Structures are given as structure tokens and as C-alpha cells.
Computed example of a mutant assay.
Amino acid sequence: MGRTLLVTNDFPPRPGGIQIFVHKLAVRLPKDDLVVYASSWKGAREFDAEQPFEVVRDRTSVLLPTPRVARRAADLARAHGCDAVWFGAAAPLGLLAAGLKKKGIERAVALTHGHEVGWAALPGARQMLGRIGRHVDVSTYLSEYQRVRLAPLLRNLERLTPGVDTDTFHPDVDGSTVRAKYGLGDRPVIVCVSRLVPRKGQDMLIRALPLVRAKVPDAALLIVSGGPDRDRLGTLAKGQEKDVVFTGSVPWTALPEHYAAGDVYAMPCRTRRRGLDVEGLGIVYLEASATGLPVVAGDSGGAPDAVLKGETGYVVDGRDVAAIADRLTTLLLDRDLARRMGQAGRAWVEKQWQWDTQADRLAQLLHP
């Protein structure tokens, strides 16, 4: 088996679901067969020192397919004897594939996420995505929604999804410390673990909470993570400060106990900007299911693929406050139903969404 150069902006300690996706795959590849070329980020030095493979950081916080970056990537590939390149996201760094192949790279594999669907809908970006497709040997997709929209532009599409670490996210995780920290006690808690950006729908949860509390008076909303939408959400939650709790960013290692602090997981995402801002899949739903929680998902992009509708949770219109509130209220009031959905979600994740399976698939795509 040859060696692989991973070229990516999406790599920890930069936060986000794509970053977790890429890293979880990377650590499961043979450590001596991988070299990572990534953008810089606060805390990278300490993080990189703990990795089982070499990580080379660029001086910039965002890698772009410029001549300088192309030269650096080619130099790293040659110095480390890499015959394959793996792009953590197809757009825009997949544009480097053509040049790297001229420098000796034999195979290129690129992951796609939600933003490539947005590229496919814009004329100029669509042309660049087509260029990527001509030089990348395999592009991966998360959901059928994605595949249909990317198929005209990217060749050899293969499904590769995130997995879940079921030893880390499991129903026996204790969320009592988190509940105590935020004064939640034994209140019924709706938890949302996701970056604070408009697409994710935390604003709709805040709007739905009064409707939920009309039937579940003690219900609280725990919003976990940080992000650029924090100030707007805080303004929206004025008057509900005792019932809407913002944790800010939390370490990865603390995520399981934050999920476990909830009774129901909800992230009612919705597609925005006329289809340019869309959910690729939503690993958070699967992490919540692995923790034993029923989930309420939005209907954006591939998000419904992370839910067995009516079995592990519900899919709702992410713009319908009443529908969101109705599903949340049902799950908070019917604890037997919530427990059955949580158990079904755990079983489904154990069967279908293991990281080792996905990493083996990636290894086959890189070195068939």
C-alpha cells in the first residue's frame, strides 16, 4: 500500500462536524501511510503533537489552491513518497489535483459535504467543481440528496459517511454534572449540540420553547457550542434566560456528557440562500442516537438520512415552529416513546454507522 497526503482546511483543533469527520477517518488509517497538510489554527501545536502521524501546518488559516500551496503540497508528497492525495473537502482544494498528478500523484480522492451542493448551483463555482471532477478519481457523497446534485459534475461518486464512536457516545454516559453546572436539576431538557450558525435552527428551538412550555412547564433548552450566530440567538432568547442555556464552545471530550444532559436531541436545520446553504448529513443526530436520545431533525439536504423516521426520531420542516414544538412536546411527555426511540437509535448506529467500516472504505478508495 502506498502513502497518502491529506490536504485539508477541515482539521482539528478547528471546530466543526467536517473537521471531526476527517480526523476520525485519518486516525484509523495506517499511521505510517499518512501525512497531513493543513491550515493553521489556535492550539494546533499541542493537538498535532498528540497525533500518530505527521501534521504539517501552513502559515495561513485558510488553504486556497494557489501556486504557493500547490508547490508546498507537491513538495510534501515527493518528500514523503506519497502516491495518493486525499482532499478533506473537494471544494476548493480539489483544484490542486491536476497539478499534483503532473508531479507524480497517481490517485486523488475528495470528500464532499454540504457546501459542494451550493457550488453546483452557482454558474462560476459549478465550472470549477466540474474541473475538480475531471481530475479527481473518486469523489464521495453523504446522502442521496447530494449524489443527485453532484452526479453531473463529479465522476465516480462513492458513498462515504461519518461514523460514530460508540464507545464514547453511549447511553451510560452521565450528564448529571452538566445539569448541575447549569442549574437544570431534573427538568425536562431539549439539547442541541451544533455550531451556532443560522442553518442549524437554534433560533427555531428558542421560538418553539414557549409552545413546549405551555404543555411541559419545566422544559429547558440547552444550546451547546459557539459560533457567529451567538449574539443574535442571545437577543432572541431575552426573557427566557432561566430556560435557555448557552454553554459556549466545549471540548470534544466533554460532548458526550452534554448530549447525555438532554432528554431529547433537536437540531431543526433548514436550507438557506436558495439552496446554497444546506446540511450535508448531520453527524450530531447519530451521536445523539448513540447516546440513547430520540432526535428531532430538520429537513435540509441529507439530514433525514441520519434519522429512521418514526423509529429513532422525527424529521420536521425546519421553518415550522408549531411542528417543531409538537414533536418536542410529544417526546418530553411520552417517556416510553422517547426511550424506545433512543434504544432503536442506539441499535441502528451500532449496526450501520461504525467509524472502522468507513475508514476501511476510504483506504480502499485511496489504494484500490
Rank of each mutant, 00 (worst) to 15 (best):
D48P: 00
D360V: 11
I324G: 01
F47I: 04
L142D: 03
T253N: 15
L365T: 08
G130F: 12
D203Q: 14
L293D: 00
E279M: 12
G130S: 14
V197I: 14
A44P: 00
A79M: 04
V164A: 00
S176V: 14
T235W: 15
V264S: 05
Q127F: 15
V296Q: 03
E46Q: 11
V193W: 05
D218E: 15
L365K: 13
M204K: 13
L205K: 01
A261K: 13
Q343K: 09
G345C: 08
V35C: 11
P217G: 03
R3M: 08
G342E: 06
M341A: 09
V315P: 08
D174T: 12
A338E: 10
A180E: 10
L308S: 11
R273H: 14
G94I: 00
G99P: 02
A180H: 00
K31W: 15
V278K: 00
A110E: 07
A38F: 04
L209V: 05
G185A: 04
R213Q: 08
R68H: 07
L93M: 08
Q358Y: 04
K101F: 07
T253Q: 15
G318Q: 01
A290Q: 07
V55T: 13
D218K: 05
L308M: 10
K351G: 05
L63V: 03
I20Y: 13
S40W: 00
D360T: 14
T235S: 14
R195F: 02
D243K: 03
Q358R: 06
E116N: 12
R149N: 02
D32P: 03
K103V: 06
V316C: 08
G88F: 00
R14T: 00
A261T: 08
V56C: 06
W348N: 10
D229N: 11
D218Y: 03
V212P: 05
A260Y: 10
L293G: 12
C269K: 11
G262Q: 11
N9W: 01
L276M: 14
L100W: 15
T161P: 04
A74W: 06
T271A: 11
A121D: 09
R3G: 10
V69A: 13
V173Y: 11
H23R: 12
R107P: 10
P268F: 12
S61L: 00
D360Q: 13
L337V: 09
T166C: 09
A108E: 15
L365N: 11
F21D: 12
D277H: 06
L281P: 01
R319K: 09
Y314Q: 11
G163V: 04
T112Q: 09
D336G: 12
T4Y: 11
G118C: 04
K242W: 05
G118T: 07
R213I: 10
L276D: 06
L209T: 06
Q352M: 14
A254T: 06
D326M: 06
I190E: 11
V316S: 09
R28D: 03
L331K: 07
D299Q: 09
T357R: 08
T253L: 08
V109W: 15
A120F: 07
C192E: 07
A49W: 04
G201C: 10
A73F: 02
